[in-house]
Simulated assay, not measured.
Amino acid sequence: MTRPWRAALGLFLAALLFLFVAPQAARADVSRPVGWSLASATSQVHVGRVTLRYDPRLEDEALAVAREIPRAWSEIEHELAGDLEDTLTIHFVSHSGRIAEGTGMPQWAAGVAHPPTGEIAIAAHAPDGSLTDLDGLLRHEMAHVALYRATGGQPLPRWFHEGVAESFGEEIDLMRSQTLAGAIFGAGVPHLEQLEQNFRATDAITATVSYAAARDFVNFLRWRDEDGSDLRQALAQVKQGKNFEAAFVNGFGRTLAELDTEWRGGLTGRFMWFPIVSGDGLPMALAFPLVFLAAVRRRRHLREGWARLEAEDAALRAPFAA
């Protein structure tokens, strides 16, 4: 199979995945107003300043979500701002249809956030009844809220909003990686000025490539410097009222166009595996080291997150103890 045909096949498969898999567990960050009423979420548990309301029939899954909350929020807030207001209300229900009833979102939305109020809703099952990735849904919606708080609710490009949420939602996303690789060796990766328009496209391939590109570019921004301070500085500048592009110049010392060029310069080398995978195939076992490293990293952040929340709770209780 020639290279053009391999790339076209990769994009075609990615489009099929988008059409038949992604919509089943889709996420959203806009909803009808606040004060959601998800009637089935009648039980609740508190994790620091986070209230998790859940369907009592999902108690085991809810407790697993509760254990994930400290690490997930701690990592996201640290990378975006260092420290943010921690108050969140998370609704956990059985099916995406319950989210639609309570928030006004489409039936296919298995996760939704209302950043101004810090409300999040996630579902255990997608529209077709399949299990959702609760960890990914939780982190994705938390990222929308955290980004809103890190920037003081200032207007941001859609590609950046979704890129940040996608970046934190999945540390390793083979589908997105394959989609981006197919574009690199095929029709090309859209430039930043195209992404905003592409996010409103109805064409499946255009949408999948744009999500994958936004996610990878945000990953590049997150990990470009050793401690991620450039991104935090840029977002702090946005919060202070700076223009989005000017804030990135102040934070990264480069324009968005220059950062885009730098990112693109490394794409071909990073995705040289794609012609091998799309040709003769690459054993999936080779991806196991990446999964192991991600698991180790997550466990470390979980310990750090719990320690931070415990310290904050102790500080809040101190005046009353005195």
Rank of each mutant, 00 (worst) to 15 (best):
A311D: 14
G129P: 06
V21Y: 15
D60R: 15
E75P: 00
R297T: 02
T206N: 04
W223D: 07
A285H: 13
E162M: 07
R3L: 11
V218M: 08
F248M: 05
H140V: 04
P289A: 10
L134Y: 07
F185H: 03
R57G: 05
A39Q: 05
G266L: 10
N198L: 14
G111P: 05
E262Y: 11
E193N: 10
G281Y: 09
R67C: 01
T42G: 01
D60T: 14
A247Y: 03
L309R: 14
E258I: 11
Q233Y: 13
L11S: 06
E171S: 05
H301S: 10
R176D: 11
A100M: 01
P56G: 04
E304M: 07
Q154W: 03
I184T: 05
E245M: 01
T87H: 03
E166M: 11
G118P: 04
S229K: 10
A113S: 05
T268V: 11
L156C: 10
A321R: 08
R215P: 02
A287G: 12
L147P: 11
A22T: 12
V50N: 12
A14F: 11
R176V: 07
D135H: 15
P23C: 02
A207G: 05
G153C: 07
D313P: 02
F217T: 10
A7H: 11
G163H: 00
G188K: 09
S31T: 09
R264G: 06
V145P: 08
L80T: 08
Y148S: 02
V34D: 10
F18L: 09
Y54E: 03
F220L: 09
F320H: 14
F18K: 12
A187S: 09
L256V: 01
D260G: 14
D86M: 00
T261M: 11
F220S: 14
G266K: 07
M284Q: 13
G169L: 04
R264C: 01
F220A: 15
S210P: 00
H46P: 00
F199M: 05
V145M: 14
I99R: 01
V238S: 07
N219Y: 13
G136R: 13
M272V: 10
Q237V: 00
A314E: 13
E166S: 11
G163N: 00
R27H: 12
L134T: 04
H78R: 15
H78I: 02
D133Y: 08
T151N: 08
S167W: 06
H191V: 12
R49M: 13
V249I: 08
A213I: 03
V238D: 09
A28Y: 03
G251T: 01
V50G: 08
Q107P: 12
V189E: 01
F12S: 14
G265W: 02
A15W: 12
L231T: 00
A72F: 06
A204P: 13
T255C: 08
H301C: 01
D83P: 00
V209A: 09
F292E: 14
W108C: 01
V65I: 03
F320W: 15
H144D: 05
W73Q: 09
F274Q: 14
L302D: 15
W306G: 07
F274V: 04
S40C: 05
L138H: 14
G152K: 08
A247I: 02
I172F: 08
V218N: 05
S40N: 00
A113C: 00
L282K: 07
E193L: 07
H91K: 10
R300S: 15
A7Y: 09
E304A: 11
